[in-house]
Design a binder for these strands. Structure first.
Lengths: 262, 262
DNA sequence: AGGTATTTGTTCGTATGTATT
DNA sequence: GAATACATACGAACAAATACC
């Protein structure tokens, strides 16, 4: 007499869960609310239903509702204040599409909008120079690809990428010449790999002659250089990308929130 | 017979709580564990005590332990995996001190280590140019300060900052010429303002002549330009900072995690 | 100004599911 | 398959912040 009062309005009890969605309840709730915010059901500045009302609506415990709201809070989507309620802060996607990078979802979705032209592909062993560049293990082997990333309606490339992928994923990658989807999407489709975390390191640099020519920029021009390490859900490093973004073509916004301060 | 079994080993029952620390239990637990990781009690790669053991040790519920661990997880400090345990991923502070920016705490602590030389102070009204630069409201008034930020043992400045602060905080700021603490610390000490969120926008630029001279760099050299908007816990904008970091003097690392993907 | 209702924040307890060894 | 350890989910209560009268 405890199991009978479970889910009702958000996902069918057992039929649809078989193939696709066996997701936790709080994820379902969070997604539902996020979609509704995107669709304008709750506008920026407006107040979300109280936790108790959401409990009634989704027929889950307050604990589950709060966990869902915490996800949205961590994304900077909403802001909760005791005594007031939960207000919508920003509309996801809309404004930040091209520049935003607040969550992994944003990062990956942004990558989807670009075209990838693969210049060359090779297999490399990490020497000291490469170890220093991308902070991998000495002697480790990698599939190396050089890529130009372009936006559909822009004359000049967005960036030049040097990508290093674990060799076990080489078969499906090494013959590619052109992609409309990022490499992580290929890995997911072909190998079932899901990226769970990205760590990136960001500096300013001057473009050298070779790269400047590739991206149609002037040598010495300022550029963002970004090194990204991609990890799967088990914490294994699957991909490293080194990107050069000439100044004026890319801006990155980040949100840093405080929960633990002293 | 429920309240008597509360806190014991982490904070004295009622004596020390009066003046300073009336913090939630999970914050205390999180801080304690973080300090212990910093001090090497748990090294990188090692396994933290199980949640049940932590329940015994801190004499709090598992829910509270999990909330504490979630804080550390969100910072990228630890990684939990079912069936395995909770492993330490990175040692906070140590390596990333100069470069790291994973949480607001890192950002603010990093700022503490620098010396600020205030070049000049003035009051400005936002014109179209300023609105475009720092994305504030047209006609709003700001206390403007130009600052050189230096690291104690480095010959050249780390960065040049143009800072805009709400005029209501001007009295305690406008006569300053030198600080060993960042502006937010002054605001907190003098006005009780606590920064709860920072949004930053990051691009690469070439240094113009004036700024290059100030930071002892060559004109045209690449630099990170970072715009930061500081908000308090009520979501009010209290400060905007525009920083120029010549290439080679500053690197920023960020961690992006996925919890909600579809 | 002050008290009460509302709403989120924190904390306890308990049970079951899932991943790993 | 069994034991271990984290993940998810239920319920309940009180505290703290805010709004309203």
């Amino acid at each position: 007499m405890k199991k009978t009062s479970a889910q009702s309005s958000i996902s069918s009890p057992k039929s649809e869960q078989d193939l696709a969605l066996r997701q936790p309840l709080y994820v379902v709730v969070a997604h539902t609310l996020q979609k509704e915010i995107e669709q304008g059901k709750y506008t920026v500045g407006s107040v979300l239903p109280t936790e108790e009302m959401l409990v009634d609506r989704f027929q889950v415990s307050r604990h589950t509702i709060r966990q869902a709201l915490r996800e949205l809070k961590d994304q900077g989507l909403i802001q909760a204040r005791a005594g007031i309620g939960t207000i919508v802060r920003t509309q996801p996607g809309k404004i930040w599409m091209m520049s935003g990078l607040n969550s992994l979802v944003d990062l990956l979705e942004f990558a989807t909008e670009t075209e990838m032209h693969i210049l060359n592909t090779s297999t490399v062993t990490a020497d000291r120079h490469l170890v220093k560049m991308i902070k991998c293990e000495l002697g480790s082997k990698w599939l190396h690809m050089e890529i130009l990333r372009c936006l559909p309606d822009q004359p000049r490339p967005l960036s030049f990428l040097k990508v290093y992928v674990q060799p076990k994923y080489a078969p499906k990658l090494k013959k590619l010449k052109h992609m409309r989807e990022p490499i992580y999407a290929v890995l997911e489709r072909e190998y079932g790999v899901r990226i769970a975390e990205v760590r990136q390191e960001l500096t300013a640099d001057s473009l050298d002659h070779d790269i400047a020519e590739l991206v149609d920029a002037t040598p010495g021009q300022a550029a963002l250089s970004i090194i990204r390490h991609y990890y799967d859900s088990r914490g294994e490093l699957v991909q490293i990308a080194l990107g050069y973004y000439p100044s004026g073509r890319y801006t990155q916004t980040t949100r840093i929130h405080s929960k633990l301060d002293e």
